[in-house]
Computed example of a mutant assay.
Amino acid sequence: MTHDNSETLRRFIETVWNRGDLSNLGDFVGESYEIRHDPGDPWDGKTLTREGFAERVRVSRAPCPDQAFASVDMFDGGDRIAMTWTWRATHLGEIAGFAPTGKTIKMSGATVYFFKDGKICGHWQIADRLSVFRQLSASG
Rank of each mutant, 00 (worst) to 15 (best):
I120S: 11
E34C: 10
D76W: 06
H3F: 15
P63S: 08
F53H: 08
A82L: 04
F133A: 14
D117G: 08
Q67N: 12
R56E: 07
G118D: 01
A68Q: 13
C121E: 09
D41W: 11
T15K: 10
T104M: 14
Y113H: 14
R88S: 00
P65S: 02
T47M: 07
G26V: 01
R88E: 00
S137C: 02
R88A: 00
G77K: 10
C64T: 06
R50P: 02
R56L: 14
R134L: 13
S60Q: 12
F98E: 04
V16S: 01
T2D: 14
P100S: 13
G122D: 01
D79Q: 02
Q67M: 11
K46P: 05
A99K: 14
F114A: 11
W87R: 00
L25K: 02
K106G: 02
S23N: 06
R56T: 06
I105H: 06
G45I: 11
A70Q: 03
L136K: 00
T101S: 15
L136W: 01
I95W: 08
S32L: 03
N24V: 13
S6Y: 01
T49G: 13
I13Q: 00
K103R: 15
L136C: 02
A99D: 12
E51H: 01
D38M: 04
I120F: 07
P42C: 14
P100V: 08
P42H: 13
A62C: 05
G93N: 06
S6A: 15
R36E: 10
W87K: 01
D44T: 13
F69H: 08
G45Q: 11
A82S: 00
L22Y: 10
A127I: 12
R129Y: 01
L9G: 06
A138H: 04
L48A: 09
G45W: 10
F114C: 05
M107L: 12
P63W: 14
L92S: 12
K119W: 02
P100L: 10
A62M: 10
C64L: 08
F115W: 00
F28D: 03
T15L: 08
F133N: 08
M83F: 06
E34T: 15
F114K: 10
S137N: 07
T90E: 05
E7N: 15
P42G: 13
K46V: 06
L9Y: 14
F114I: 05
S60I: 06
T111Y: 02
V72N: 01
T84K: 06
G30L: 12
A138I: 02
Q135T: 06
R58S: 06
I126F: 14
H3P: 05
T15G: 13
M107E: 03
Q125R: 12
K103M: 12
W85K: 10
R56N: 09
N5W: 07
A70W: 00
G26D: 04
I126K: 11
R50H: 04
D73Y: 09
A96L: 05
T2R: 15
S60Y: 11
G77V: 05
K103C: 07
S139T: 02
Q125V: 09
Y113V: 06
W87A: 00
C64G: 01
M107G: 00
D128C: 05
L25S: 00
E14P: 09
D117I: 07
D21C: 10
V16E: 02
M74T: 11
A138F: 03
